[in-house]
Design a protein around this nucleic acid. Structure first.
Lengths: 209, 209
DNA sequence: ACCTGAATAGAACAAATGGTCTAAACCAGG
DNA sequence: CCTGGTTTAGACCATTTGTTCTATTCAGGT
């Protein structure tokens, strides 16, 4: 494994554990058993490490969406994408635990994220249209309702990890399952009877909290 | 105005503007035109400033809930509490922008917040029961649905500021109004026809984004 | 064997930070 | 006008941090 990849892996691990601010180049180097000078040789700017990890997350998420875009619209596809997305986010959770600070610190990342966000919003809008045409999603009850649903969905998707970090007691698996259910619950009352029947088993697959 | 109050006011202002990490005791003191030694005389531990500001926010939120608890359950009461809560949160937004870091840094605050959270959850559960008995809220479609609604509600309530900081373009007023609508949209599909009629004007009071 | 460029360790540095300490200024009450 | 506590300014200190720099080592090609 290349040294720069080992640096990224170690940084990811330590960032997830303790946050970006408490972890310095010296900590990461010590954890790896290399000198911090060496680390700075590979990543002259500390921020480059964070930025690279952000790009890695984006790449993983793109993989998820690429795979799923060819599947037919439906509840199973929706749930798959939810689970895979949440799992990927969790692997890079430090980014979402420190969301605002990191975005403020790295303007390039912020710009990228904003552009990505509008792009993803369009994707989800398309998916919702597909669900509606398949007779799974009810039409809007008032103009802009589905836009609100999208906003709710992404807000929850971006911050469930932060809330869980403070409030959730339980294993990582339970955590992911719980918040995936809460997110899926967002769409339930917008579904047709058929859609509700399909989603219900997932929503009521009980777990603590 | 007592010096310690001026310190809190200045710290709140600077924290909201630049976050807690970039702002040091020296920055706050310089902004006020006093020496940092003097500031440390009033707040020997820097964390005390943050903790005190957190307690101030909690006190303001308690005021809001105290005032509204005596009002009859209904959509107007719900919207009032939403608006007042969001406004108070926004005044102390640095706390919510740096949520995880601050909670990690101040275990006392985290413990207090967790206890407050379960308390608030019970309050909201009671309010939902009131709405249901008043014929405004539909009964649960599946066990735990309203608990999920509560979870969605608080997650959005705690993190709308963070998302807005990165994504929202527009005035503070528009920002508050937009996210209050998104939050109110959470409950809309759970309402009876009467409830929906009452809420609809608020949801469709259009604004940009 | 030798050369060359990449990789590594570790010293060095300047800047910033939280906190302490000392001495001066201030300001009521006698 | 004294006095004793409170408030303030500013020096001081130990520590940390990102970054740079200088040697030294290593590995592969000739």
């Amino acid at each position: 494994m290349r040294t720069s990849d080992r640096i990224l892996a170690t940084a990811l691990h330590l960032f997830n554990l303790h946050g970006t601010d408490s972890m310095t180049v010296r900590h990461i180097a010590r954890e790896m058993g290399i000198s911090h000078g060496n680390l700075c040789y590979h990543f002259p700017r500390t921020e480059d490490i964070i930025q690279q990890l952000y790009l890695n997350l984006v790449a993983e998420l793109n993989d998820v969406f690429g795979q799923l875009q060819h599947q037919p619209p439906g509840i199973p596809t929706l749930l798959d994408s939810l689970r895979l997305t949440f799992a990927a986010q969790y692997r890079y959770r430090f980014l979402l635990l420190d969301f605002v600070r990191i975005m403020r610190r790295l303007p390039a990342v912020q710009a990228h994220f904003r552009q990505l966000y509008t792009q993803r919003r369009e994707q989800l809008r398309g998916a919702l249209n597909g669900l509606r045409e398949a007779g799974i999603l009810l039409p809007e009850q008032y103009p802009g309702q589905h836009d609100q649903l999208i906003a709710q969905f992404y807000l929850l998707g971006d911050f469930w990890i932060a809330e869980a970090e403070i409030l959730f007691e339980g294993s990582e698996t339970d955590k992911l399952a719980y918040y995936a259910r809460v997110a899926a619950g967002l769409i339930y009352p917008h579904l047709t009877d058929r859609g509700r029947q399909e989603l219900l088993p997932f929503l009521t697959s009980a777990a603590p909290q």
